[in-house]
Structure formats: structure tokens, C-alpha cells
Design a protein around this nucleic acid. Sequence first.
DNA 1: TCATGTGAATCGATTCACAGCT
DNA 2: AGCTGTGAATCGATTCACATGA
Lengths: 254, 254
Amino acid sequence: MATGRTHRPATRSRGIPEATVARLPLYLRALTALSERSVPTVSSEELAAAAGVNSAKLRKDFSYLGSYGTRGVGYDVEYLVYQISRELGLTQDWPVVIVGIGNLGAALANYGGFASRGFRVAALIDADPTMAGKPVAGIPVQHTDELESIIEDNGVSIGVIATPAGAAQQVCDRLVAAGITSILNFAPTVLSVPDGVDVRKVDLSIELQILAFHEQRKAGEEAAAEGAVPAAAASRKQSSHEGPDGDVPAVMPA
Amino acid sequence: MATGRTHRPATRSRGIPEATVARLPLYLRALTALSERSVPTVSSEELAAAAGVNSAKLRKDFSYLGSYGTRGVGYDVEYLVYQISRELGLTQDWPVVIVGIGNLGAALANYGGFASRGFRVAALIDADPTMAGKPVAGIPVQHTDELESIIEDNGVSIGVIATPAGAAQQVCDRLVAAGITSILNFAPTVLSVPDGVDVRKVDLSIELQILAFHEQRKAGEEAAAEGAVPAAAASRKQSSHEGPDGDVPAVMPA
DNA sequence: TCATGTGAATCGATTCACAGCT
DNA sequence: AGCTGTGAATCGATTCACATGA
């Protein structure tokens, strides 16, 4: 990721590994569910199962936060909810702006789990002047011209980009210039940002392509496992399309 | 391997690291852009910059696919587009079903970059009977009852879950039972699936929480860096809310 | 001469396995 | 007796640095 990995004084005692940080929200979600069912304590084994990881990893992850468990017993659910929330910075609330109120932007604005956990949609911004004032998810859309003042006035530090690819870098530059230091990018573009600005991307198309890779590999293995039977290789999977080589590259390798 | 491929030492397909697979779509996107501008060749340095990675990593990644470059020159753009497309399984088309046509599901159905690269929305499925027949993105929504027959009839192997969290596992189970072996999950739930089924998740809330973690850390460091100046620590960032400890856990550690 | 391709070194994350505490 | 917390071992991914070949 384009995380500004520059001059960090290193050896910060708050040296929580990135992989661990990425799992904390998962633990938090599982713990919140337990909390709602008034479960008082949970073992690493149970919680790990609920979060979909293995227990050794979970214990190691928690060990970076401190010793919050009780040997022989497990973890106190409420206490852990609080500690993880605090570690993630969810005990304060984070105003967020969404830029690009098309289908996706509107869906994000309507997404409930948003506001629930420390995040608040401070503004919706779109370049289309005919959208200005129109409410989406109960929030009036504002024009891009207002971007800088909105961010300044609301002390926004997290921005969500849901524009078309072509506009993303430009929007990103304006967000950064206006003081945004964390960006969640839904546009299929590589954003370049100065050091100190974090970017995370969510890319449907990339996810599908990764799935397709594995899917293809499964199909190949299945065919290979079919062994002696040469024809009738397809059980159910692909039905359309001819062979995988309908089309040959124009240029051959050197 | 079913591919009637020409040369190629083969047996390599097995060894592509997951981290490399996850970057191939990124390279492909950058290469496609170059291809559209009729750029004939590109160096690892240039392509890496376009994809937002460093060149050593890119070369290593490509080395898993084979030796597709020319020393002293670089990579042939068209040829590489083809090789990566084939490696990712994008030379065939993949029918996809989207289950859960709410705001998000509809946005996904409308997402263009979908169809462009080897994926085709074969069906939209929703549990709400009043939606049945209503077209979204030009495709009529079908009722969940039809799920199994849709998947079977269209040879679908990739499913997208965009339902509320509560319905996700149930939908997942039905998809898997019907023959789906790859799932892209947008619901904030840990799905459990049998071996052989791939799940990837996209979770807005998790991404925001990860950003909040880093954002909080930046704010802390900034305050620390402010050093001697004790008050007036905030430059512009947070403006609302008091300190991070407004609220204390009900339960103390053991 | 130049950029690829790749062993070797490094770094980070996961897993193992058990000591230490309740 | 049982579960956490953590060193040590392992595994995978990244980076380095240079030999290789166009």
C-alpha cells in the first residue's frame, strides 16, 4: 500500500504489526456480538473461531496490545471491546466525507455500519451541480467547489473517493491539499499521495480477478484429476465458451 | 492442464505466490492503459511506477510467470497483457450472480468495470418478492427461490453476496450447495465454507477502522513532535470531541 | 550499455510448543 | 487443570545486488 513508510523513529512501543491492526476490527465485531448476548468472558479458542482465525494468532495479536486476559479463564468481553476500540481510535468520532455520489457513493452513504462505529458522514460531495442540495441518505449533496471549506470547517481527516477513475487523482489531490490524511479509494486507480497520507483501496474488479485465478486453477486441477477420462471433463463448471485459446497474442516473446 | 499451450516450461502455474496473484490485476490495468496509448514496450521501472509498486517486486512477480521480458529493452506491452490475462483466467468469461439487490447490490450491478474484463452479470437475485422482474442495470431481478436453477443453468461458479449480514451465511450455504466455488462477500460477516471454496471479503467498516488506527497514531505523534509546546497541539486535524478517554470500561482487568 | 531475471539476504508474519499464572 | 502469553522455529514475501544476455 502507499503507506508513507518514511522516517519513523522506529522502535515505538506502539509497534503493532500491520497484519494485527487489520484483524482488530474483526475481533471487535465478534466481541461486540458476544457483548450483545451478555457473554461475560471468552477463551482465545472460542473468539478465534468466531473471528475466523486460529487461536495462536489471536493470542499473539492480543499480546501486542498488552496482557488483557486471565490465564486459565480467558478474556473479559467488555473490557476487551473497550481496549480494542480505544486502540483503533473508535472512542472518538471521525467525520468522513464521501466524494462522488453516483450509485456507489449513494450506497456507501446509506450503509448503516458506517455511523455505528465511530464514523459519521459529515458531507456528501459531487461535481454535478444538478445534484447540489438533493438529499441522499438524508444528507444534502454539496458541490465540489465547497470541498475545501467543508473539510476545514468540519475538521475532517478521512475521505472516501467514489468518483469515476478519471476524476480520482484530482479529487485526491484536493482532499490532501485541504488537510485529509487518510483516504479510502473505491476508484480503480493507483493514487499517488505525499508521505504521511494513508491510502487504502477497495477494488471490486481486482477481487474478482483474484477469484478467477483460483477458479481457473481449480478447473485445471479437476480436469487433471479426471485423469484417464479425456472427454467429458467438465462436471458442471464452465458451460459457455470454447477452449481457452481462442485468441493468440499479436506479438511473440523475444 | 487443459490448455493446449505451445511451449512454456509449465508446472510453474502451481508456484505463483498469493501476494503476486493479488498484484497481477494491478499490472494488467496499467498495461491496458499503455496498450490503449499504443505504447509498444515498457521497462520494469516505468510499469512499476504506473502500478504503484517497486521495480524489483514487479520483476520478481513476472519471473513467476516466465521470462517474458527482453534484457536491455523491457516488456512487450501487448504480449504481457495477453500473458497476464491468461494467467488470471480472463481469456474466458465468467458468469457471476449478485445476491442481495439493495443499494450496494444495485451499485455493483451498475458497475461498468465489471463486464469489461471477462466478467458477466448472469443474474441478480433478491429475497424480496416485490423486486422480482424489476430490472436493475437492465437485468431483471429474480427471486431467491430460483437461486439453484440459475446457477446450474448458467454454469455460474462465482457469486457476490451483497445481502444484510444476517442473511449472508444462509445465502452462502445455498450458493455453495448449488455449485459456487468462489465468493466475494460484501456483508460484514465471517463466512464459513467447505474446503475448496474461496472467499474474499470487502468490508468498508474494517477499512475505515484501519484508517482510523493510523489516523489516531498520526495525531499522537504530531502532538509528541510538537514537543515543548504543551497546549495548542492541534494544527487542524480533529476539532470535535474531547480527549480519547471520555469513557471508561465497566470492567477492569483481572 | 542497459534492463531483465534471480540467488541470497532480509524482513515480517504465522505457527509451534511450553513456561507461567490463576 | 486449564488457558494465556511468548520465545523459538518456520514460512512467506520483499529487497538487494549482480550475473546474464539482448
